[in-house]
Structure formats: C-alpha cells, structure tokens
C-alpha cells in the first residue's frame, strides 16, 4: 500500500481512485451498504444523485435558513414598529400609527427576511461543510491533485468506527479502486 504525508503523524484516511463518475457512483453505493459513516467522495464536478448513492440524510441547512429568515423578519418588525408606533408615533400622509400601518413596513420586513435567509444559507452551508479551512490532509497526496481535472476519488477516514486497514483495503479493492493509499494528517 502506498503512503502519502508523514507516517509519523496521525492517519487521516485511506484514499483510492476510481476510473470515472459512474464507477464512483456505484462505489459510493457499496461503501454506504458496507456501513461506513465517516467517508467522502471527491470529483471534478457534481454527480447527480450522489447524495442518494452515499446515503446522505436531508441537510439541516433548511432549518437554519428558516430560523435566519425569522430573525430577519423580527428585526425588521421591531426596528420599524418600535420607533414609529411606540416611541415616537408620527402620522405620515394620513396613515395610521397602529398595527395597520404594516403595509408601509412590509418591504423592509420582506427584504430583511430574504437577506438574513440568504446569509444563513451561504454561511451555514460553508459552516456545515467545515469551511473555510487552511488545508486538507488529502492535499498531502500528490495524485489527489487530479481531482480538479479528471480524477475521481473516495476516502474512508480513519475515525470511522468500521475502519480497519486490512478490511477497508480489501473492500476498496473489491470495488475496483486503484492507487489505494494511506493518507496521513501532516
């Protein structure tokens, strides 16, 4: 088995290359069925249906976005109702200062809801992906540079409870994966 990175440091994962997107898709299905939980696939482009092949559950992002939207709506409502209806009620163009002035406040409430939802979606997505980060252990593996061009990889992390150098290697070989490599953290 090949080795990438410094073998003195902690083992990060066992990586392997497969020939194409279809092979990666079917390999992912088999790894999923083998019961691994901490692993990932890497490809130059998004592969349709990969989340299903990997057995990923629905992301929590939508819940975060919902909360983000609610926060935006609340901020906009408070920032407008508190000064204009409670602290310093001012009649503008004959409009009421009670709750029924709400049409005038809707555009801001709408925009802030959208803004905070979009912020939560963008930054929440980055956070859930563990980004930004300075480096990734897989970059220690020279072959892995192909991933932004024509390489299709999967890596089973050493922290996976089912990870076992012999068994995992045998499984990867049975998938037809090549260049099986132990990738170390440093």
């Amino acid at each position: 088995m090949q080795i990438a990175g410094n073998p003195e440091s902690q083992l990060f994962a066992m990586g392997a290359e497969v020939p194409d997107a279809s092979a990666l898709y079917h390999a992912a299905e088999k790894v999923r069925d083998a019961g691994y939980t901490r692993w990932d696939v890497y490809s130059p482009f998004p592969i349709h249906g990969m989340d299903h092949a990997m057995g990923l559950k629905k992301s929590w992002l939508s819940a975060l976005v919902f909360i983000g939207g609610l926060v935006g709506l609340t901020i906009a409502a408070l920032l407008q109702f508190y000064p204009s209806s409670i602290e310093y009620p001012l009649i503008v163009a004959g409009k009421p200062t009670n709750f029924f002035t709400v049409p005038a406040f809707f555009p801001i409430m709408f925009e802030l809801t959208i803004l905070l939802s979009a912020f939560t979606a963008t930054f929440g997505m980055l956070a859930l992906n563990g980004l930004p980060r300075w480096n990734h252990p897989l970059f220690n593996w020279n072959l892995f540079k192909k991933v932004s061009n024509d390489g299709f990889f999967l890596a089973i992390e050493a922290t996976d409870p089912k990870f076992d150098e012999e068994a995992t290697r045998a499984m990867l070989e049975s998938l037809g994966a090549e260049h099986i490599t132990l990738v170390y953290g440093d």
């Binding site: 004959g94 409009k95 049409p103 005038a104 809707f106 555009p107």
Partner: peptide
Amino acid sequence: GFSQYMLIWYAN
C-alpha cells in the same frame, strides 16, 4: 397582490 395594494394605499 401586495405590490399593487401598497402603491395605491401609499399614493392615496
């Protein structure tokens, strides 16, 4: 619906 209503309501 709201855009239509608000423009008319506000312009009065």
